[in-house]
């Protein structure tokens, strides 16, 4: 298991677990990121928000907010 923000661009992963306060969990699940869901990393550089693609949607994530997202990398 890795932190989502540790993945390189173009990698694909599956969300393994979510960790954070109630508000974070509620917000992250309501945009579609739940355990078991597949995520493509589109952009991941420096201190700028991450861009990921999941459930047909491009999602921008603040770097602090993705600390609680643990993933398993999968090979396409």
């Amino acid at each position: 298991m890795k932190e989502l923000s540790g993945l390189p661009v173009d990698s694909t992963c599956v969300i393994a677990s979510l960790d954070g306060d109630q508000r974070f969990i509620s917000r992250i699940t309501s945009i579609g990121l739940t355990p078991g869901c597949r995520v493509n990393v589109i952009k991941n550089d420096g201190n700028r928000p991450m861009l990921i693609y999941s459930r047909d949607t491009m999602i921008a994530l603040n770097r602090n907010e993705c600390k609680g997202i643990m993933v398993k990398e999968v090979t396409a």
């Binding site: 974070f24 917000r27 945009i31 921008a60 994530l61 603040n62």
Partner: peptide
């Protein structure tokens, strides 16, 4: 106040 979790629509 919280960080962005936002959709980038087409």
């Amino acid at each position: 106040r919280y960080g962005m979790i936002m959709e980038l629509p087409p």
